[in-house]
């Protein structure tokens, strides 16, 4: 399981092992200030990261940051 959440400390405290930080509480996988196309690109980027996280072996709680 991968947890996509904005408040990473909560995700860590409840014990998620693969964590993707997201955009904002009311729209974790979107950004209403963007155009629809840009927004979908952003969402795609985050979900791609989540899939990559699922393909990555982890031994402890891991936050997948946005360096790639």
């Amino acid at each position: 399981m991968v947890h996509m959440a904005t408040i990473v400390p909560i995700s860590l405290s409840v014990g998620a092992n693969r964590i993707i930080p997201t955009v904002a509480i009311p729209h974790p996988l979107g950004n209403p200030t963007m155009t629809a196309a840009e927004e979908k690109k952003l969402r795609r980027h985050l979900v791609d990261k989540a899939l990559k996280a699922l393909e990555t072996e982890v031994t402890e709680q891991t936050v997948f940051k946005d360096e790639d």
Binding site: M4, T22, A50
Partner: peptide, 8 residues
């Protein structure tokens, strides 16, 4: 096989 869990 796997779950994506999203939280607000």
């Amino acid at each position: 096989d796997a779950v994506i869990l999203t939280s607000t």
